[in-house]
């Protein structure tokens, strides 16, 4: 059930983002890019294992109980999603996808900031945010 809701959410976000970057207004394009990157972040998170329910943080208190399946990787026993061998039960959610999402969020923060400033500068130079009027480069 949860997976279905997540899938529908991701699909809708991709749809909205694609719709927005096809608009004529520059700011809407920027918003569309942002929504697309959020949809991608959700997609990355959803590609991790959902089997476990524990937070993948190993601190001193539960270091003893946190050994186990994380670093078992045996090709001959078959392939199952992240670094968990076949048949083993994962009690932690996949930490790697969270790291990936964090990286993607940081990068999308930088690009969004750059993009918004760029929109502002283009508005200063051209006096409009309508993309159909900004087409001097052709030939």
């Amino acid at each position: 059930m949860n997976h279905m809701i997540l899938a529908i959410t991701i699909a809708m976000l991709f749809g909205i983002g694609t719709f927005m970057i096809l608009r004529k207004d520059m700011i809407r394009v920027a918003i569309g890019i942002t929504i697309l990157s959020h949809a991608t972040n959700l997609l990355i998170v959803s590609s991790g294992a959902f089997l476990g329910d524990k937070v993948p943080i190993i601190t001193d208190q539960n270091a003893g109980s946190s050994s186990g399946f994380i670093f078992t990787d045996d090709l001959s026993q078959g392939i199952l999603a992240p670094i968990v061998s076949n048949g083993a039960q994962a009690i932690y959610v996949d930490p790697l996808v969270q790291a990936l999402t964090l990286t993607a969020i940081v990068i999308s923060l930088a690009t969004t900031a750059f993009l918004l400033i760029l929109c502002y500068r283009v508005y200063q130079e051209h006096g409009t945010t309508d993309l159909s009027e900004i087409r001097r480069l052709k030939g």
Partner: peptide, 19 residues
């Protein structure tokens, strides 16, 4: 003005491809 327009194209299309 032309440079900014070019960068806008470059950045948007690059973002789409990166996504």
């Amino acid at each position: 003005a032309d440079k900014l327009e070019a960068i806008f194209k470059y950045l948007i299309l690059n973002m789409v491809s990166i996504i």
